[in-house]
């Protein structure tokens, strides 16, 4: 009797989680042998929000997204997608999510329409509903009149939008995009993000990995993953304010490389990085930083044309966080 009750609770309650969250990861970990690809990562994605998952190549972005889609089972920890456990209920998850990878997984030797028919069929669409969804995808992707073109003859932006269309034919409430805009021109990227916003407005939860900073600004929440660890989590504004104890300056001078080298030696200089023709420097616990910078550079005969205190960009935040993480690791090692 007791057993039955427990079973029932599991079915009804699905999991001990709040209903506003589409994706919940708790201490999610994936090891490949000794290599820890994802290291005790925890986060929540609210329904209808765009969650940006950022990090350098090899940081664990794709491994995380694959665990969430039910492709890999976690080594430790747990994750729930749409209320279902990725380790034990991957089939339930698969029919409720859309997934699109950087490779735009279309059949290149099939036509636009054949691709839609195939994926539609796999997701169980048929008859009038398939026609309706097909029409919607073709409109959305701007492929009207190109239905009988082979997929490999389409240019990057169209293929990307067709792939997106094929992955949301079944109107999934949750959409996973693994670096969806890699290798696509800026205009197509912009159009693609318009589609993402549109889907988000319709209540679709979007989990997107990227390494474009401008795309990160479009997200409601951002998680930064670095060597398998989640080292920053919050909205873009929150993250920028997390650097409040630092003052960030943009410096334009005659010799950027030498200037950065000189300033890096100062105790109050936290981090320096190149931004276009100038560089950014974040300073900590120092007064008159502007004057100090000016003084040091002028002493070494570097002509300073501009020093300006700026609001830190997301990139400043990430560089700072990565530096802190590296320092923490080195400290632990020594």
């Amino acid at each position: 009797m007791k057993l039955w009750k427990g079973h029932k609770e599991q079915l009804d309650g699905k999991a001990p989680m709040d209903n506003d969250c589409a994706v919940v990861a708790e201490e999610l970990t994936k090891k490949f042998g000794k290599f820890i690809a994802v290291d005790h990562v925890s986060f929540k994605v609210k329904r209808g929000e765009i969650f940006g998952f950022l990090g350098p190549n090899g940081a664990g972005k794709s491994t995380t997204i694959r665990m969430l889609c039910g492709l890999f089972s976690p080594t430790e920890g747990s994750a729930h997608v749409g209320g279902f456990d990725v380790a034990t209920q991957p089939d339930e998850i698969k029919s409720r999510i859309g997934y699109m990878s950087q490779k735009f997984s279309l059949y290149e030797d099939l036509t636009v329409e054949q691709n839609i028919n195939f994926y539609g069929g796999i997701y169980g669409l048929e008859g009038a509903r398939l026609e309706e969804r097909k029409h919607w995808v073709i409109e959305m992707a701007g492929l009207a009149g190109k239905e009988s073109m082979l997929a490999h003859t389409l240019s990057g932006g169209w293929r990307q939008r067709l792939a997106l269309g094929c992955s949301i034919l079944h109107e999934p409430p949750i959409l996973f995009l693994d670096e969806p805009t890699g290798g696509v021109d800026p205009v197509s990227r912009r159009k693609f993000w318009d589609l993402i916003y549109d889907l988000s407005h319709r209540g679709v939860t979007i989990f997107v990995t990227t390494h474009y900073m401008d795309e990160a600004e479009h997200c409601h929440t951002i998680g930064l993953i670095y060597t398998g660890k989640l080292i920053a989590l919050g909205s873009p504004t929150e993250l920028k304010h997390s650097l409040d104890r630092y003052s960030v300056f943009e410096v334009q001078c005659s010799n950027t490389v030498d200037a950065m080298e000189l300033l890096r030696g100062q105790a109050w200089a936290a981090e320096t990085s190149i931004f276009g023709s100038a560089f950014h420097i974040s300073t900590l616990n120092v007064s008159d930083a502007e004057k100090k910078i000016q003084g040091i550079l002028t002493n070494e005969k570097i002509a300073v044309s501009r020093i300006e205190k700026i609001i830190p960009s997301l990139e400043d935040v990430f560089i700072q966080r990565i530096a802190e993480e590296d320092a923490r690791k080195n400290g632990a090692r020594n």
Partner: peptide, 8 residues
């Protein structure tokens, strides 16, 4: 990979 994420 795409097929594996579908309910097939």
């Amino acid at each position: 990979e795409q097929l594996v994420v579908t309910p097939i």
